[in-house]
Design a protein around this nucleic acid. Structure first.
Lengths: 210, 210
DNA sequence: TGAGACAGTCAACACCGTGTCGAAAACGCA
DNA sequence: TGCGTTTTCGACACGGTGTTGACTGTCTCA
């Protein structure tokens, strides 16, 4: 976005702040959070290291701001999800999980950095949990509804099941994105995950319409 | 797997080396790896910081040695597991998963530190994968056998399924140990996990003896 | 128009943890 | 006793983080 009209000697504060965030997201795409120094962020935004502290109080604070944007996006998307589980349970679950995968993948750098930072930073941990919690709430509501209408068997607490399955997704996707071993082919991830969800929620291979 | 760390032959400094490991395991029980400095390890072992480097080349090297011990224990235990899946599939899986849980829990500090260090350190990552791989191999062998004898349905690759379920275990147990949120009650973990394993491997709530 | 409030900037400094080096002490063993 | 090897650590270099204080533009209102 170019500055038109009278040339101001200074770039505005907001632009600087944004430049730091843009730099951070770009650098996280190519290397790990620990390997990005505040010097790098400041340099990328065209300011000196002390000036960085005018905008953010630490490197973690930058990650937090980045994560916050992602979380906001996730919340909107969860809300927009169609809930056609009665008519097409397999399709509905697969689309939901696909969305989960999509969010992770499209913010790969931020996601993996946040997951790593979670162990160290309270605020990152809180924000991440909040997001996971929204996924868990969504899934356990649906599972509970499916159990209530007799489509899914009781015998397992809906919340416990939802937590376990969501954590599985988080972990498997991380493994795939980081090309860990053991992991599975990225192309098969969605299929495998949704199969496990369906089988463990409905207790059978083909959930009937009942 | 022998002799990580100090690679010179003589025996006399073994006590020191051991004191460092003991100190490390103790400190990892009370705080995070990042919050344990080399100074702390050296102090705990009654030596100065530079002397620490005579025994280990870095803090990560200590963690690696600790992890190596745990891995060795795991390997023995996996070998000793009874394989009575034909006669009592539910019990057999539950015992296997219970063992997995047990190993994690009994080496809580080392496990969580290793999981965190994995992102940063190649050797830790390699060692951890090797262990996970042995669990995955064990599980996928059994799943494949169950599918072959007709007890479990095809329709999902045994290896992909094994990877996903094992990663779920890793992640859920970590969440429970760290008291994350979302997580589930520690007392219910084994039950929930084995239910998900059974349902997704056998495609039904009660695997028949067939 | 000019005084003060305020946003923005950075050189210089303090600090902490890691890792290195070389000199010296302790320990066998002949 | 004297020699080589093992073990020890003081002192130093380095890199990253975070702080301080002084300085420079810019805006605004009397």
């Amino acid at each position: 976005m170019a500055q038109r009209g009278r040339r101001t000697a200074r770039v505005s504060g907001d632009e600087r702040q944004d430049a730091i965030l843009v730099t951070a997201e770009a650098l996280l795409g190519e290397r790990a959070f620990d390997d990005v120094s505040i010097e790098d962020l400041a340099g990328g935004a065209g300011i000196s290291r002390p000036t960085f502290y005018f905008y953010f109080s630490s490197k973690d604070e930058v990650l937090l701001a980045l994560l916050d944007r992602v979380i906001t996006e996730v919340e909107h998307r969860v809300g927009d999800l169609p809930r056609d589980f009665e008519s097409d349970p397999v399709g509905a679950w697969t689309r939901s999980i696909g969305m989960f995968v999509e969010v992770f993948v499209s913010h790969r750098g931020v996601s993996t950095a946040a997951i790593a930072a979670r162990a160290r930073n309270d605020e990152v941990r809180a924000l991440w949990s909040k997001s996971m919690q929204s996924w868990v709430d969504f899934s356990s509501d649906v599972i509970r509804a499916e159990q209530a209408r007799g489509a899914a068997p009781e015998g397992i607490d809906a919340h416990d099941l939802a937590v376990s399955l969501n954590l599985m997704n988080e972990r498997l996707i991380t493994a795939v994105l980081n090309q860990e071993s053991p992991a599975i082919a990225e192309s098969r991830a969605l299929d495998v995950l949704s199969t496990i969800w369906i089988r463990s929620i409905y207790g059978s291979i083909n959930p009937g319409r009942r």
